[in-house]
């Protein structure tokens, strides 16, 4: 179970550059970062799963909080989350295979969102394991390409949104 940090940053290429630059230069062992938009077009949320066995999540947090472009770092720890991953899977499919693929998609509550002359695109949403499993099952038809969002997550049942973690100190 990873330890989640939810990092709210300014929505700009520069701020993403600063965050990734920091993670790289501090050699902080984090990967599988996913990037989500939020209700505010001015900001982005980065979801960073941290393995506490490899690095103290508080150290990652403390480093991120030094960046001015980071508006808030929420430590979700191991709180109950809704986690969803989404993939678009392009499968090589002759007309004969359509029914079989459609049945498989049904099983994963996936949808066929594009039908081409030689391919289908399957859209699947769910836990990372479910998406993995769906892609694995589709392999035997011939997967042409996959794009995935990476996990999006939200804390279950919490009434207030992400707290404003930073304060501008009043002029002395």
């Amino acid at each position: 179970m990873p330890h989640w940090l939810a990092v709210t940053v300014e929505n700009s290429v520069e701020s993403l550059n600063r965050v990734f630059h920091l993670l790289r230069r501090r050699h902080l062992p984090v990967d599988a970062i996913s990037m989500c938009r939020t209700e505010d077009p001015q900001e982005l949320r980065l979801l960073i799963p941290v393995d506490p066995a490899r690095v103290d999540p508080q150290r990652v947090r403390a480093n991120l909080e030094k960046l001015l472009c980071v508006k808030a770092v929420e430590d979700w720890g191991e709180r109950p989350l809704v986690v969803r991953d989404m993939a678009l899977v392009k499968v090589r499919a002759s007309a004969e295979a359509w029914v079989e693929i459609a049945q498989l998609a049904e099983f994963y509550r996936a949808r066929i969102v594009d039908v081409g002359p030689e391919t289908l695109i399957v859209e699947v949403t769910g836990s990372a394991e479910k998406v993995d499993s769906c892609i694995a099952r589709l392999q035997r038809f011939g997967v042409v390409e996959v794009t995935r969002s990476g996990p999006m997550a939200m804390v279950r049942g919490q009434a207030e949104a992400a707290p404003a973690d930073r304060v501008a100190e009043a002029a002395a």
């Binding site: 909080e65 001015l68 770092v73 973690d165 930073r166 304060v167 501008a168 100190e169 002029a171 002395a172």
Partner: peptide, 12 residues
């Protein structure tokens, strides 16, 4: 402005 007014926000 007073230079002190331009204080970058810091984590609480």
């Amino acid at each position: 402005e007073d230079p002190e007014a331009f204080r970058p926000s810091t984590p609480r």
